[in-house]
């Protein structure tokens, strides 16, 4: 075997061990070395040259990037996730049957969908969705994300929260926690418009807080305009559209003059 491939494989072994030990500094360090090494292989995207060891190299590179993605989730680094995922993506979409599909493919694609959802990048979410086959959409990992998006759009937030208990993969928990925060903000936004007031107890339940103290901290921080009075939370109502008391004469004159000008031009 090519000595470079052997070297990369060995380094990859150490990288995996570092991830298992949760030794983040070492693993990021090793990952950068691995990425530099991968640039030397000609069989990888975008060149896709047919070398004798290309199958091995492709599989290795895909493995490395898959681990990199998982590592970025564990380190809770969303930017790194995005970078690594985009590097990984060609191995799923463009290899054209050179290597067998990876068992990690759907979990990672689902994870990416979830990330887009958390970051509220719905347009990209749907763009990614179009790329998936109908078989892929049936996969539990993908389906999970798709259903989440639907519940989210509908406003069935409690379904989103229940989904946290049924995550198809351990790595999903990080994003689900983030999603819970987004959901709280959404619920707060909706309640503000939908209710005149809520009892503190109901508000606490709805906004998923365990104690009244957390609730009041949250209100102070995010919605200082809400008012807590006699055990109730009062939301500030947006001003209603008032019936116009007077005729906006200046505006009307302007409009009429412009009509006259335009008509003059036509006739």
């Amino acid at each position: 075997m090519d000595p470079k491939v052997t070297e990369a494989t060995q380094l990859f072994g150490r990288f995996k061990a570092a991830i298992v030990r949760n030794d983040f500094p070492t693993s990021t360090n090793l990952l950068s070395q691995l990425k530099v090494m991968l640039t030397g292989f000609k069989s990888l995207p975008p060149l896709f040259e047919d070398t004798p060891s290309s199958v091995h190299e492709l599989t290795l590179a895909r493995d490395i990037y898959e681990h990199a993605v998982i590592l970025s989730v564990e380190m809770e680094d969303q930017d790194a996730f995005e970078r690594d995922f985009f590097q990984l993506k060609p191995y799923y979409t463009d290899v054209g049957g050179r290597i067998p599909p990876s068992p990690q493919e759907y979990p990672i694609l689902g994870l990416n969908l979830l990330r887009l959802l958390v970051q509220n990048r719905i347009a990209e979410f749907h763009t990614e969705l179009e790329l998936l086959s109908s078989a892929a959409l049936e996969n539990p990992c993908i389906k999970h994300a798709v259903e989440l998006e639907q519940s989210f759009m509908e406003g069935a937030y409690n379904r989103v929260l229940i989904a946290r208990q049924t995550v198809p993969h351990d790595t999903y928990v990080y994003f689900m926690d983030l999603l819970a925060k987004t959901v709280r903000d959404e619920i707060a936004g909706c309640s503000e418009k939908a209710y005149d007031y809520l009892s503190i107890q109901d508000a606490r339940q709805m906004l998923l807080f365990t104690s009244d103290k957390e609730l009041s901290e949250y209100i102070n921080e995010e919605h200082p305009e809400w008012e807590i009075k006699n055990g109730f939370v009062y939301f500030q109502k947006a001003k209603e559209v008032a019936p116009s008391k007077e005729i906006p004469s200046l505006q009307l004159i302007n409009q009429t003059l412009s009509y006259a000008r335009e008509l003059e031009r036509i006739v």
Partner: peptide, 9 residues
């Protein structure tokens, strides 16, 4: 309840 709340918003 949630759906109605979102529709209102």
């Amino acid at each position: 309840e949630n759906i109605v709340a979102k529709a209102i918003r």
